[in-house]
Amino acid sequence: MIGGGTGLPVILKGLRKKDVDITAVVTVADDGGSSGVIRNYINVVPPGDIRNAMVALSDVPELYKKIFQYRFKTDDQFFSGHAIGNLIIAALSEMDNNDIFEAVQQLSKMMQVDGHVYPASNTPLTLNAKFKDGTHLAGESEISAAGKTIEKVWVTAIDDTEPQAVPEVIDAILNADQIVLGPGSLFTSILPNLMISNVGEAVLKSKAEVVYICNIMTQKGETEHFTDAQHVRVLHDHLHHNFINTVLVNTEPVPQNYMDRQKYDEYLDQVKHDFKGLRAQGCRVISDNFLELRDHGVFHNGTQVVEELMQLIGRPNSWIN
């Protein structure tokens, strides 16, 4: 799986119950919240998405997970807003001379991770965006907050080197039976991974079926008024190739006035469907009720999505026309 944000762990938790070898390739371009503060202070890959993926695949007792995930209260001046797991990942990385990849592998053993969690890059990356009005911005949080229509994104390394993934990431992609993108923010969780040149190239070279889990809701500052076909078009345009084989689309309507708009203020309207537009891009469309409603928010039903992914694995090469 390739992605980041809150959607990735939902699917990882479901996959962990199946007899599959899971590798999560996680974005390292986050510059907000606790991850952003840690990144700015000690120049380490932002650990938040990595932490959540590890917990989703961990076999340690629930108490250990709760401690790892615990976030200090905002009135704790020194540790305000920081998750303990973020601090542990940062410390291990510093102990390993800022080798975040090796630090995550060591911690994965401690956390009894059932699978692999790989940072998409071993160095912190900055997400850059060009907007339709011709302006540019750098930084995930700045881009999301701009409220402008994004034309394209790319990543740069903070040490001015060419962004690259370590060989283990590329080998995992090339040897995969199935590559899953999402669910997650299109421009700030999925594309930052694919814009690392050797990651994007590996996805195009892979013989695995590429499955995109389309978002249920459009997102403020990223995908306002987007259809499912427009989500896929953006992915194809960025890699200059129609590489997505199958798209999972939720068709269950979200009940009116269910969402807490203050708590989930980044989400706008339900993604509209354009199945003709998806098929015109060479995609097989699988539509079903993938909706889960909880805490007055809208999420993917991890169990339903995973069952569909498992069925796809059982039908090798079935996406080829």
Rank of each mutant, 00 (worst) to 15 (best):
V104K: 08
F79Q: 05
Q105E: 09
N86Q: 07
A103K: 09
L107T: 00
N86K: 04
R51W: 10
P47I: 02
G48H: 03
D49L: 00
S108K: 09
L92P: 02
V55W: 04
E62I: 11
S93I: 05
E94G: 07
E62A: 13
F72R: 10
N97Y: 11
M54G: 01
D99P: 10
N98R: 14
S58I: 06
N98K: 15
Q106R: 15
S108Y: 06
K66E: 14
G48S: 07
A56P: 06
D99L: 04
A83I: 05
V55L: 11
N98H: 14
F101A: 07
K65T: 08
R51H: 06
N86F: 00
G48C: 00
R71E: 10
D49K: 01
S108D: 06
A53F: 07
F78N: 11
Y64C: 15
Y64P: 05
F72P: 09
S80V: 04
G48F: 01
N97F: 10
V113R: 04
V60E: 08
S93P: 09
H82L: 00
V104D: 05
Y70A: 08
P47Y: 05
D96P: 07
S108G: 03
M110Y: 13
V113N: 02
G81H: 03
E102C: 08
F68N: 04
A91P: 04
D75L: 05
K73Q: 14
K66I: 09
L57V: 06
L57M: 02
L92E: 05
S108A: 10
L87E: 07
Q77W: 12
A90N: 02
K66A: 14
G85D: 08
Y64R: 12
F79N: 11
K65D: 10
R51Q: 07
D76V: 14
G48T: 06
A91T: 11
S58W: 07
K65I: 09
Y64F: 15
F79T: 05
Q106N: 14
I50Q: 01
L87P: 06
A90H: 06
H82V: 01
P46E: 00
F101K: 08
R51L: 03
I50V: 03
I89V: 04
V45N: 00
V113L: 05
V45E: 02
K73T: 13
P46C: 01
